[in-house]
Write a protein that binds this DNA or RNA. Structure first.
Lengths: 212, 212
DNA sequence: GAGCAACTAGGTAGAAATACCTGATTTTAA
DNA sequence: TTAAAATCAGGTATTTCTACCTAGTTGCTC
């Protein structure tokens, strides 16, 4: 067992119990890593991280109470040098870019191989990044998460609001645009997802793990 | 610790290391379960199960060397009384039917809550079956939630078709009733689920595991 | 057989969504 | 600096959905 000072301090925020437990169990076997804590939601994460500084944070995007997207900027403001590996059930180019803009160091699909996660942790800590090319390869390998829809950022916003039971009018008001524009976006989303109505869009989004 | 004879003997075949490790770690904490072995592919599964009889097998559909679909019939022929809980990243009605035809006892999405998996293991062992609808009923009783959907059989039929992107008219034609009747059922469902439109109904159904 | 829940279905309105268009401005990428 | 993509939004017509009514039939139970 190495000295704790030399080991990479890692924390996990992931609400899915089985995955979190799996990551915990596997990381505990890595002797160059020091697993500091694991939590199941964003609020708990913010509390814990204040008392337990870490080098690398594994962060799930979709969590209860406070999601990853929300707490990522908060935490990064407190600890600008923290490296964050974001996990998401859904993996796409637009989300990748969005997450990196938020300040994440790396973005991986939830069902990545453990070896990839391990590489990512070590790489973001030592080099400050994890090769996007590599994660792209991983994406291609992971047929389960392969997708071709390629939503634009605006479409993703609309998609999210549709999954919150919002009507076009309500979405228009929330985004300060015309309801006709929202309808236009919806039509394009329907084309991309090969669906024919709002329910179809919602079904697609939920089945593909967008906004659980 | 209970007597081993009384505990449900469980085995896991799942190639995704993190998930497998997570399930292993969580099942080991359950004192009425006896985790006999865990493997990462179908060939290993067949070897191990010959020497280590179990009551319930948790089986991933997509595995290297030999996938779940292939080894399920083989194993079931050797052990006709074995209960098999199939996991899959994909969850849909056709796959469900396919898997049940193969002889599986239960079919769950990979990213189910651990509590659901646990319920499934106990239920298939004791009662020989498990359905997500049932788990919801039991949860409702246990947690005393204010959820009182209590759908009628007809409402469940409509709910299912709504989750297949069908319009009221299409549902009416499928069930040989008036589209006005379908609309009436939809209104009742919206009341019960406290939703305000079709998307809301679908979101409710999918989030609560009705028809994934 | 009275009461009840479930299923059926019609009337009328208005709201919302969908299917076609069109074209503008802005952003991004080649 | 073009070309392409994304975003915005209006027109018009049709379909679908939602809301709030009423009300008949069946089947079950007390």
């Amino acid at each position: 067992m190495r000295n704790n000072e030399e080991r990479i301090r890692v924390a996990i925020a992931e609400d899915h119990q089985i995955l979190r437990q799996g990551i915990v169990a596997l990381l505990e076997d890595e002797e160059n890593l020091n697993l500091v804590f694991d939590v199941g939601d964003g609020l708990e994460l913010i509390e814990k991280i204040k008392e337990n500084p870490v080098d690398v944070l594994i962060l799930d995007l979709n969590m209860p109470k406070m999601d990853g997207e929300t707490c990522l900027p908060i935490i990064l403001k407190l600890y600008p040098n923290l490296k964050i590996v974001v996990l998401s059930a859904y993996f796409s180019e637009p989300i990748l870019n969005f997450v990196l803009e938020l300040g994440a160091t790396c973005f991986l699909p939830k069902l990545s191989d453990f070896s990839v996660l391990l590489d990512a942790i070590v790489s973001v800590h030592q080099k400050g990044f994890y090769s996007i090319e590599e994660s792209k390869k991983e994406k291609r390998l992971n047929l389960e998460l392969e997708m071709k829809e390629n939503f634009t950022p605006r479409e993703l916003e609309i998609l999210k609001l549709l999954c919150e039971e919002k009507t076009s009018k309500e979405i228009a008001e929330a985004l300060f645009i015309s309801h006709r524009t929202v309808e236009g976006h919806k039509l394009r989303i329907m084309e991309k997802t090969k669906t024919t109505n709002t329910s179809g869009i919602v079904i697609f989004a939920l089945r593909n793990g967008y906004f659980r």
